[in-house]
Write a protein that binds this DNA or RNA. Structure first.
Length: 311
DNA sequence: AGACCAACCTGCTGGC
DNA sequence: TGCCAGCAGGTTGGTC
């Protein structure tokens, strides 16, 4: 699914509903949902039982809940890590309600209240319990990413360590991003989707950021000027911030918050999904190109194809 | 090292 | 009606 805004919507819901609650038991209904948990489903469930969930964090499209032993005050060394993939949902609700068709993992709490469910039709998403390791960006601080208490987490889950900061974190370094772009020999959209360069941006918001920056998706990264790179970054920040403010983008019932409610940003999209509809700047019909077996939407007038294109 | 693609899944839609 | 191709917001592991 879900790109940064949609994941952040879910993170905020979890913050409200799971923080400080202790797990009674976890049930894995589909082993593929925890395939990245190397020790297997039983170990996954065993590591959750008796642990207390602390304030959820997020970087890019990953989110995680630090796990504290109920009897301990020590800093958490492990976290429940979640990636929603293409169709994953984390839902909070009455534990007695019917089981969803694609329910993969269910977590019950010692207070007997609302349970936490991982529902995922396509099973590209996953959950795992993993170690927290030092954050490559920890020397930076004072962020305002809206993901917590105003400080960059000193620790991140091991699988998150290899991805870059996301553009809504203060830990994100625009100058390093620009240098990385210039070093690459690829197209700007491919670079935007590369989570090791910038995290949180997916197919929708890449197209939206490029539309705002008036750049074609196949523009070679090594030819970007500093000003153009800044425009893309600013476009990404603005569009993801605006989407977050209205609950994210929901084309269908997959992309919902922890209560199952959809966001409203679809109507504000300027490029994505608007094939043949008029560009909101110049009126030219938006075109759709196939690239990497996925769609790219752009305005032929505002975003002319570069002479030297990179795919 | 960096670039690129196929693979991993289920379900829905549109064309024939 | 059935069947099949195409499409869907992501990441990885492998090849070159």
């Amino acid at each position: 699914m879900p790109e940064l805004p949609e994941v952040e919507v879910v993170r905020r819901g979890l913050e409200r509903w799971t923080t400080g609650r202790t797990v009674a038991s976890a049930e894995v209904l589909h082993p593929r949902a925890v395939r990245r948990h190397a020790a297997g489903p039983a170990d996954f469930a065993g590591r959750l039982a008796g642990r207390t969930m602390l304030t959820p964090r997020r970087r890019g499209k990953y989110m995680w809940l630090p796990l504290q032993d109920a009897s301990s005050r020590e800093e958490p060394g492990e976290a429940l890590l979640a990636h929603l993939g293409m169709s994953g949902q984390l839902l909070i609700g009455d534990p007695e309600r019917a089981r969803e068709k694609h329910l993969r993992v269910r977590v019950e709490f010692t207070d007997g209240g609302r349970d936490l469910r991982f529902v995922d039709q396509r099973t590209f998403g996953h959950l795992m319990v993993c170690d927290l390791v030092p954050d490559a960006f920890k020397e930076r601080d004072g962020n305002s990413d809206g993901t917590g208490d105003g400080t960059v987490p000193a620790l991140v889950p091991e699988p998150v360590a290899h991805i870059a900061a996301d553009p809504l974190e203060d830990a994100f370094d625009p100058e390093a991003f620009y240098r990385a772009l210039r070093r690459r020999r690829t197209g700007i959209k491919r670079a935007l989707l590369d989570q090791s360069l910038i995290s949180g941006v997916g197919n929708i918001y890449a197209d939206e950021a490029l539309w705002r920056a008036r750049l074609h998706w196949a523009r070679p990264t090594e030819t970007l000027t500093r000003a153009e790179a800044a425009r893309v970054l600013e476009g990404a920040r603005e569009v993801m911030g605006a989407a977050l403010a209205v609950g994210g983008t929901s084309f269908d019932s997959h992309y919902v918050d922890v209560n199952g409610d959809s966001g409203y940003f679809e109507r504000s999209l300027d490029a994505y999904g608007r094939r043949d509809e008029p560009c909101r700047r110049c009126g030219t019909p938006i075109r759709r190109d196939v690239f990497m077996n996925r769609s790219s939407y752009s305005c032929p007038t505002c975003q002319p194809r570069p002479r030297r294109a990179r795919y």
